[in-house]
Design a protein around this nucleic acid. Structure first.
Lengths: 226, 226
DNA sequence: TACTGGACGATACACCGTATCGGGACGAGG
DNA sequence: CCTCGTCCCGATACGGTGTATCGTCCAGTA
């Protein structure tokens, strides 16, 4: 059959150009939109118009994909500011801001060692800013600030989710947990707790985070940079 | 057929007596032995010689089972000691010890609000010990120590697992991560980090945890109990 | 005794991560 | 240029997950 009347071959779907970067971006997008549970290799593959097993050319397991996602977000975590104190504070606050932008980060933070290039770059930046501190003290100090940031952020995100889950309202969890807590405290089994909840000023999340961070930084200053 | 020659009905397995407590104990045992991934409703049910759906009479979802597991472990977390400082320190160290006994706890800590009776009892005990501190400052202080403990413990357990995964050896991760880190630091892209890793004294996990905790407690003391 | 309401849990569903291995692309040898 | 062998890709399949559904069976009542 001559070429003039021979039909073109069926439009073969161009194999979607793929890369770790594209895969990770798709996964992050899914997680941002619908939470970490929405990240499955099948869904990521579908978002890229690709069959699932194709991904295994770029990653060895789902765990690796999660590691890559965390490292990708570390690009947004760059300490800035003059002096060790500002560097540490901005590190902690950058972690918190990143977790606000990507709530799923709270589920992953601290779950596995972060040794990707962007995480190391964050570490490099903060360690470099700590040159006023004895080299033997740098690691414990950074570790402490990191630990605080991770724990505080997890707690904050967990609370935010619990509030959202019980009815989408902002101030009071009306549906379940609020009344449960009130009832439980009213039993008198937790008198000190009840007093604090009743009488103490209720701080918002920003303030709570800042207070704890300041306490830790004060302690560091007194010990190492006095 | 007369009863004399009619066989007895097949020995029906006595329906295993069940309770939340038994279910949670079985789940904790599975998690202690083989990690959190080994906890599935099917495996828990099998351990209790029961069909999976039976469990839904006692819990509404797997998430609730995990909440119950965390609360059960909180029975081991009781702050002790005289004065607010000792109470906070022993709280943090009790969390850490619990996570050493139940590594899976690190995966769950801070992931959801802890409002079970045993978790509240821990909170009650520590808040009661803080009566020397202004009522408005109690929550932020406890939250800060809790945040630090959660973050530090997660980090520590994550590292321990990474070491174990790369070849079961204690001091040096020979298989993968160690050499990777050395190679990466040798590139010169992270000079400050490389200096610290090369020159600084390497602290063990106990010491690292204690240092960070002391820093935080110092900061609290300076601000609120001075 | 006959009926009925409700609780229980076997079955089934939708989905997961990934091991396997058939088939097709491609390079080498005749 | 054709054939054969190799290797690698990815469709298929497997063994698992959490839990919705709804048939079955039993207890309680009329």
């Amino acid at each position: 059959m001559v070429v003039w009347e021979r039909p073109e071959p069926p439009e073969r779907p161009v194999p979607a150009p793929l890369s770790r970067d594209r895969i990770v971006r798709a996964a992050v997008q899914l997680a941002d939109a619908d939470g970490l549970d929405a990240v499955s290799l099948r869904k990521v593959a579908a978002a890229l118009d690709v069959r699932p097993m194709r991904l295994y050319g770029y990653i060895a397991s789902k765990e690796e994909l999660l590691d890559l996602m965390v490292d990708a977000v570390h690009a947004e975590i760059r300490p800035a500011g003059d002096g060790w104190r500002e560097a540490l504070r901005s590190l902690a606050e950058a972690v918190r801001r990143a977790a606000h932008r990507h709530e799923w980060l709270a589920d992953l933070l601290g779950g596995r060692p972060q040794l990707g290039p962007r995480a190391l770059a964050s570490g490099e930046a903060v360690v470099a800013a700590l040159d006023g501190i004895d080299v033997d003290d740098v690691m414990p100090v950074v570790a402490a600030v990191n630990a605080y940031a991770i724990g505080a952020v997890r707690r904050e995100i967990a609370e935010r989710r619990a509030e959202r889950a019980t009815g989408m309202d902002e101030r009071r969890w009306q549906a379940e947990l609020g009344p449960y807590l009130e009832r439980t405290l009213a039993t008198g089994r937790f008198p000190a707790l009840a007093t604090v909840v009743r009488d103490a000023a209720h701080r918002d999340a920003d303030e709570t985070f800042r207070i704890g961070l300041d306490l830790l930084l004060d302690g560091i200053e007194a010990r190492f940079a006095g």
